[in-house]
Design a protein around this nucleic acid. Structure first.
Lengths: 140, 140
DNA sequence: AAATTATATTGCTATATAGTGATATAATTA
DNA sequence: TAATTATATCACTATATAGCAATATAATTT
C-alpha cells in the first residue's frame, strides 16, 4: 500500500535531521516495527476475513464449510486462508483431501472485544449528542 | 476495497439459503457490524497513521509538529488526521491558526499492546523452530 | 486591505488487493 | 489408470487509497 517515493529517508536519519536532539522522544519507534503492527491490523481490516474468523470461533472448519458459512467463493476463501495463516491467526491441518482451519491466535477476539467496546462507546456518545437536539423540536 | 458484484446477497438471506437451519450458529454476525470493525482496523493498518498516533502519545501536537515528527508531507498528514478524527481515535482543537490533535481513544494503545504481545510470541516461536535446525549443522 | 502562516482540499498517479473464472495440484475412490 | 473431490494457484479486472503538487481556505499580523 502507498508509494512513498522520496519521503521517509529512514526515520532515524529523519529524526536526526528534523529534531535537533531537543524534543527527541524515546517514544520514537522504528517504521519497521510499526510495519509489522500495521500488517497485522491490515489482515483484520477486511470484512471477509473477519467473517471467516467468526465462523471459526465455534470450532475448526474445512474450506468448503467456510465457503458455506460465509458465502464466499472458493478461490477467494483459499486466498484469505493463506493470509490468515501467514499472519498466525489461523492454523492449517490437512486430513485426507480436506484442509481444516482453526483459530490459532485467541488474541484476535481480545482485539475484537476492545474495538467493540470502543465502537459502542462512540455510538452511545453520538446518540446522546443527537438526543440533545430534541430541544430543537417544535411539537410538545 | 474489493468489488464483490454478486456475492453476498445479504448474509441473512445467505444464511437462510446455504444453511437450512441445521447448523445455524448464534455466532452469525451481520456483515454490517463486521464492516464497522473492519473499518476501524483499516484505520490502524497504515504505518503512517500508526506513526502519527505514536508521536501523539506524549501529548497533543499541531499539524506542523506532526509533519516534523513523522516526516510526512502536509497534505498527507492532513488527510490522515481527517481519517483518524473520523474514526474517533484523535480529537481536533483549533487554536488560532494552528490545529492541535490529541489522542482521544486510549483503547488504541491497548490494541497495540495486544498485537505487540502476539507478534512477540510468534517471533519467539519462529526463533525456537529455527534453533532446532541447529542439529543439521556440520561443524563440531 | 495585503501579506503571511497554517491547514484543508482537489486532481492526479502509482500501487495494492478483493473477487472471479480457469486451471493446476493432490488425495481418494472406482 | 481414470474419475472424482477438495484445495491452491494464476491471470485478470475493478476499486480503493497513499502520497504528491497545486490550490483553496482561514486566522493572524503588518
Amino acid at each position: 500500500m502507498s508509494s512513498k517515493p522520496i519521503e521517509q529517508p529512514s526515520s532515524t536519519t529523519l529524526a536526526t535531521i528534523s529534531t535537533p536532539a531537543d524534543d527527541w522522544e524515546i517514544t520514537q519507534i522504528s517504521p519497521g516495527a510499526l510495519s509489522l503492527m500495521a500488517e497485522f491490523f491490515k489482515v483484520l481490516s477486511e470484512v471477509s476475513r473477519l467473517q471467516i474468523a467468526c465462523c471459526l470461533k465455534s470450532g475448526e472448519k474445512n474450506v468448503t464449510e467456510i465457503m458455506e458459512a460465509t458465502g464466499l467463493g472458493q478461490a477467494n476463501v483459499s486466498k484469505h486462508m493463506k493470509i490468515l495463516t501467514q499472519a498466525g491467526i489461523v492454523s492449517r491441518e490437512q486430513v485426507g483431501v480436506c484442509v481444516y482451519y482453526r483459530i490459532d491466535n485467541p488474541i484476535l477476539f481480545g482485539l475484537c472485544d476492545l474495538v467493540y467496546d470502543s465502537l459502542l462507546q462512540q455510538s452511545q456518545q453520538q446518540d446522546r449528542q443527537l438526543r440533545s437536539l430534541e430541544l430543537l423540536r417544535q411539537s410538545r
